[in-house]
Design a protein around this nucleic acid. Structure first.
Length: 288
DNA sequence: GGTCGCGTTTCAGTTACTTCA
DNA sequence: CCTGAAGTAACTGAAACGCGA
């Protein structure tokens, strides 16, 4: 976390970097709710305006994702894929999980040895049916959307609280318990994780906005203080400078202090005790 | 040991459906 | 009834990883 606050410049120049907690690696480990946030100002796309505080937020993974992201096909192309005539063909085309081909490999067989025979049979059936059952049910090709019951949602939520990702066995068990297909449970968890992350991002965004407001206020206050001091200096040009030995300066916030009670009271420039800048990032100067 | 191909899992982004004001 | 917004189930394509050849 770095924070630079330049009160001497005409505008507000803030560079904020916030690292809330360590980010877990994608894909192998489930993402927790924490992630890095960076605030960089001004943004490259929008010219910096000194009178208009703005925030540019970016999650740590975004750069990576921008690089890999490729614009998708339009609706027509998508629909032509989704609404495939042949259910089996569709299961091949629409699934990245390769429902059909996975049964021809020895590795799947090995993995399935871990499960009981009953589980394997059920999983096999459900895997095959997971992408085609909608079409088989009523003969239409339209993607149907199931609404989970309150009980199902509650149980899923309960399970999500315990672990935000499921291993195949857990998925299987939960699906059976809920009378859903494992794929549906899987999708629900995916979406749930995404919502959690989105919510956390919103919270982080609000937090950073507040930080920005605080810094803006502090900047304004310091500028005002500077003007007052300049005015005072002009009004009393023949002041007696304080002996340097009586002055101490906080190395962190570079504010004068440490002067003895008497000295500070007598000094023509004794600074009124002001509340220190509220530092949400636990700036060391807060310890002054 | 290096690498190539394949299968699996997870993700971000998106689409499409449902509900509700 | 119509409509737009919000919520969310389902989908897509890509990346990362493990494993066997």
């Amino acid at each position: 976390m770095g924070l630079h606050h330049d009160a001497n410049t005409s505008g507000l120049h803030l560079v904020l970097g916030l690292s809330l907690t360590a980010t877990s690696t994608p894909s192998t480990k489930p993402l927790d709710d924490h992630h890095h946030l960076c605030v960089i100002k001004p943004t490259p796309t929008k010219p910096y305006s000194p009178n208009e505080p703005s925030l540019t937020l970016g999650l740590s993974g975004e750069t990576y994702h921008l690089l890999k992201h490729v614009p998708r096909n339009n609706n027509v192309a998508n629909n032509s894929k989704v609404f495939c005539e042949d259910p089996l063909d569709m299961s091949r085309q629409t699934s990245p999980h390769s429902v059909v081909s996975s049964f021809s490999t020895g590795r799947v067989v090995k993995r399935e040895r871990d499960l009981s025979c009953e589980e394997v049979e059920i999983e096999a059936e459900e895997r095959v049916s997971s992408r085609v059952s909608d079409e088989e049910e009523d003969g239409t090709n339209a993607r149907k959307k199931l609404r989970l019951t309150k009980e199902q949602s509650a149980l899923l939520e309960e399970s999500f609280k315990q672990h935000s990702t499921l291993n195949p066995k857990q998925k299987q068990a939960l699906a059976r318990q809920l009378n859903l297909r494992p794929r549906q449970v899987e999708v629900w968890f995916q979406n749930r994780r995404a919502r959690t992350k989105l919510k956390q991002t919103e919270v982080d965004c609000e937090f950073l906005k507040k930080c920005c407001e605080t810094l803006t206020d502090e900047n304004r206050r310091l500028k005002k203080e500077l003007q007052e001091l300049k005015a005072l200096k002009l009004a009393q040009p023949l002041y007696m400078p304080m002996p340097a030995a009586t002055l101490t300066m906080c190395p962190s916030c570079e504010r004068l202090g440490g002067v003895s009670e008497n000295a500070s009271n007598k000094s023509p420039f004794s600074m009124a005790p002001k509340p220190h800048f509220y530092n949400p990032f636990a700036n060391p100067s807060a310890a002054c």
